[in-house]
Design a protein around this nucleic acid. Structure first.
Length: 854
RNA sequence: GCGGACGUGGCGGAACGGUAGACGCAGCAGACUUAAAAUCUGCUUCCCCUUCGGGGAGUGCGGGUUCGAUUCCCGCCGUCCGCACCA
């Protein structure tokens, strides 16, 4: 008996699947569909085991749904634009396109060696002009619809690289690669008007019942809707007013100051004539982003000397400050302070000696005595000290104030959002060119549709800083499509999140002349099960939700709003990290354990074992997929990734764990390659009646089918694996001498194959074939449990005395209460623990438990 | 600070309010073997009495509801994640 030859077997079945085209699908109207999608990868080089956990889960779902009869779409492609390709170009002179294609080739091979059931005929790469031409068209349509626009915006500018950096690329105020101090620059940038859909995106979250709660909460916070009012405060003697945003307009009569953001236009204007204020503003800006957190506690303000009139009481005036805690980016960049009912305002008021006027009285307090001490009162109560609002609740007062303000023309109820429009401009080469032309006469002119795609020039150099498109000698010089005068192309490219915002649609019609066809999208969309990392909880998922709506708004024929009906966010794969005493990271395979247990590196230097962390290249704690597949095979890796932890939690990759799985793979193979007794030919009907020895085994097979099916439906893959292992344990204990054992064993093994096939498809096919199965197991239906066999004829009933387990009892299923009770009371253990007392009460839970209280 | 999740053996983890620790990893003992690997069998939450067997404690801590709580409620402690001067 030889060991299971995974290398040969896996190659064999991969070939058969490919040749038979089983995983190729086409829309078939009237047939139920299922669309499984894993977040497509960026082709960064090689895969490690951390990458493939979600593909393994996706493949399990795809194969399982297929077996259940769904026409299952399971595509794969490449998020192929992005910075690493350019970094590689800068570092080693390779062209981003070649680098990317090489990586795609490697990674495609690696995925194919894993045996994933993708429809490879639908493969796409977003860097392909055949892909991005459609998104250039989308961009132009957004432009036409007013959903894309250009405006000046502050960006992180790296003066050495001469490029804009994303926030994540700024580390402690410096460019991540150049180390240069990042400057804030005002640059004209392209934006998508995602805020136009803020309400819709927020409200539709409630309907995403197959999304994780926390992702919905994160998106909700990100959109950050807050309902309040805009209020105008007229500046005394200035003939202008300041507009503030507040959610507590009910407390307007408690106002004791007004505060502007240091970047508020009025602050800047005032600073022109007030050097002290200018210095204060400069100081606020210097504190900037990262240090602001540290200094958070300190609220500081600068008193401008101006005063504002209270909008509801002409006689009252409040001082105007410029304060460091007011953000220009939120609301109107100005606030009014009501210290009695806001913690931050109270801190500010105490510091600058401003009045604290309570206007909301907590229930049960005496208005004559109530005073604000250390903390502001932010709860509900009844208004007082507030003229026409006195006696109203907070809610009623808000409404009354809004109405009054509106009547006076000094404000109105309004809603603001934390969400900003999506800046899509990148001063980068390796991305989709933004298809517009700048003409001195005509302004911004869209590239005519017949001229799409605007493709990237191949002859670019990365040896100097800045955007190669901008430096290219000819590329940007084109005649204006409108007036024919010399003009220049936009040299910014699109954020790569643009590509991933609609790729799921392209997969429906990957070779269509248009971005997608309405028929295909109607049939396949929405994605039934989307699987990916929680790190995309906000941006990618929100952008995709926005895109779906925006495309529809622009006339694309889509009959749904939400692209992803079900979302699952899987945990990361972690591994121990290793470091030398000099702090140098080591790959796991570089670390050797001496006999003493001491860890050393290849040169014998001591190594410290660090904490478990997410596999990443930087910490070198990665386990290469290639080595694992060569040592244990794809199936072993797949099963291990599914079995060791619940899918939503992090998984620790250990060599011992994969070894254990490998032993199980061999055990399974032995069970069919060398069965303990000759099996009847396939297709022979199992005996209808089995003796009492075998009957429980038959029931267990059916129970396993039911349990595994339920577990897979609920994404409890680790439990499903445990059930399957229980079944294989049971099949090894089958009483072989009992009549019908061979036939039952065949049934058990065939069931095992079917249940295993989504997890370990190659092994399952090989086992199936060894059992004499005809055709591909991948084309076989999912097994069905016989409902009658899921319930036992005889049940074990736990017997408790005063809530403590004292004995168990075998009874026929659904035995009558008195019978069970009597049987329990007759037990010697019960008599012993009752110790002569009469039972006061007996609780009987049918088929489960008897509790005797005495 | 706000919001969310989580806390069970040496480890990963199972348990519709009903026999806590399924399944696996690691460990220990044994069988097979000249030997090793592989394989197989048994044991493995802790403590106590012990021959069989039995008893007690136990799911972060403290309370509560219940015949019965890992599960539900209240209050702490801890870990992780997200957001954070949001007006």
């Amino acid at each position: 008996m030889s060991r299971y030859n995974f290398a040969q077997t896996e190659a064999k079945w991969q070939r058969r699947w490919r040749e038979s085209g089983v995983f190729r699908v086409a829309a078939q109207r009237g047939r139920p569909k299922y669309y499984v999608l894993e977040m497509f990868p960026y082709p960064s080089g090689k895969l490690h085991v951390g990458h493939i956990r979600n593909y393994t889960m996706g493949d399990l779902v795809a194969r399982y749904r297929r077996a259940q009869g769904f026409n299952t779409l399971h595509p794969m492609g490449w998020d192929a634009f992005g910075l690493p390709a350019e970094n590689a170009a800068i570092a080693s002179g390779v062209h981003p396109a070649g680098w990317t294609l090489d990586n795609i080739r490697t990674m495609r091979e690696e995925l194919q060696r894993m045996g994933f059931a993708y429809d490879w005929s639908r493969e796409i790469a977003t860097s392909d002009p055949e892909y991005y031409r459609h998104e250039q068209k989308m961009f132009l349509e957004f432009l036409k619809a007013g959903l894309a626009y250009r405006k000046e915006s502050w960006v992180n500018w790296d003066p050495v690289e001469m490029t804009v950096l994303a926030n994540e690329q700024v580390i402690e105020g410096r460019g991540w690669r150049s180390g240069a101090l990042v400057e804030k620059r005002l640059l004209a940038q392209w934006f998508l008007r995602i805020t136009a859909f803020a309400d819709e995106l927020l409200e539709a979250l409630a309907g995403l019942d197959r999304w994780p709660e926390r992702v919905r909460v994160m998106q909700e916070n990100w959109i950050g809707r807050s309902q309040g009012a805009r209020v105008h405060f007229e500046l005394v003697g200035k003939g202008e007013s300041v507009e503030v945003f507040t959610t507590r307009h009910d407390t307007l009569f408690g106002a004791s100051f007004l505060a502007l953001s240091p970047n508020h236009p009025l602050s800047l204007r005032l600073a022109e004539k007030d050097p002290e204020l200018a210095a204060f503003i400069a100081e606020c800006n210097r504190l900037g982003t990262s240090e602001a957190v540290i200094e958070a506690a300190e609220k500081r303000g600068y008193r401008t000397g101006l005063e504002a009139r209270h909008p509801l009481d002409e006689r009252r005036r409040v001082p105007l400050y410029v304060a460091n805690f007011v953000l220009m980016e939120y609301g109107t960049g100005a606030v009014f302070g009501c210290p009695a009912h806001d913690e931050r305002d109270l801190e500010f008021a105490r510091k600058y000696g401003l009045p604290v006027i309570p206007v909301v009285l907590p229930a049960g307090e005496d208005p004559a005595r109530f005073a604000i001490g250390e903390t502001a009162f932010v709860g509900d109560g009844v208004l007082y000290n507030s003229e026409f609002l006195n006696g109203l609740s907070v809610e009623a007062a808000k409404q009354a104030v809004a109405e009054r303000l509106e009547a006076l023309g000094r404000g109105r109820a309004t809603t603001v959002y934390r969400l900003r429009d999506w800046g899509v401009s990148r001063q980068r080469y390796w991305g989709t060119p933004i298809p517009v032309i700048h003409c001195e006469t005509c302004g911004i002119v869209p590239v005519p549709e017949e001229d799409l795609p605007v493709t990237l020039p191949q002859d670019v150099r990365f040896d100097t800083a800045g955007n190669p498109l901008d430096r290219h000698p000819t590329w940007k010089h084109v005649p204006c499509p409108s007036c024919r005068k010399p003009a220049r192309r936009e040299t910014d490219t699109l954020d790569t999140f643009f590509e991933s915002s609609w790729y799921f649609l392209r997969f429906c019609s990957p070779r269509a002349a248009d971005a997608f066809t309405a028929e295909d999208a109607r049939y396949w969309m929405p994605v039934d099960q989307y699987i990916g990392g929680v790190e995309h909880a906000i941006l990618h998922l929100l952008y995709s939700r926005f895109f779906t709506r925006a495309l529809r708004h622009c006339g694309y024929d889509l009959d749904f709003d939400e692209p992803f009906a079900g979302l699952f966010t899987q945990g990361m794969v972690c591994h121990q990290t290793y470091q030398t005493s000099e702090g140098e990271w080591l790959f796991p395979e570089e670390v050797r354990s001496e006999e003493s247990g001491r860890l050393v590196d290849p040169r014998g230097r001591p190594v410290m074992a660090g904490r478990l962390e997410k596999m990443s290249k930087s910490k070198k704690n990665i386990v290469g997929l290639e080595r694992i597949v060569e040592t244990y095979g794809a199936d072993t890796a797949r099963l291990y990734l599914l079995s060791d932890s619940p899918p939503e939690r992090d998984l620790e990759w250990t060599e011992a764990g994969i070894e254990g799985t490998w032993r199980y793979v061999n055990r399974l193979w032995r069970m069919v390659s060398a069965p303990p007794l000759p099996l009847p030919p396939p297709g022979a009907a199992p005996p209808s009646a089995l003796g009492p020895q075998l009957e429980p085994f038959r029931r267990q097979i059916h129970k396993t089918i039911a349990a595994v099916t339920d577990d897979l439906d609920k994404f409890r893959f680790n439990r499903a694996v445990a059930r399957i292992r229980e079944l294989s344990n049971a099949l090894e204990e089958l009483p072989l001498e009992a009549p019908g054992a061979a036939s039952l064993l065949r049934f058990g093994l065939e069931t095992l194959c079917r249940l295993l096939s989504p997890m370990m498809p190659h092994l399952a096919e090989e086992m199936w074939e060894a059992l004499g199965g005809k055709g591909l197991l991948a084309a076989e239906p999912w097994p069905k449990a016989e409902p009658a066999l899921l319930r036992d004829e005889e049940v074990t009933i736990a017997v408790q005395v005063n809530g403590r387990l004292r004995a168990t009892l075998m009874m026929p299923r659904d035995a009558a209460r008195p019978e069970v009770e009597q049987a329990a009371l007759a037990l010697p253990q019960v008599a012993r623990w009752l110790d002569g007392r009469a039972p006061k009460k007996t609780v009987v839970v049918p088929n489960r438990i008897v509790n005797i209280v005495g």
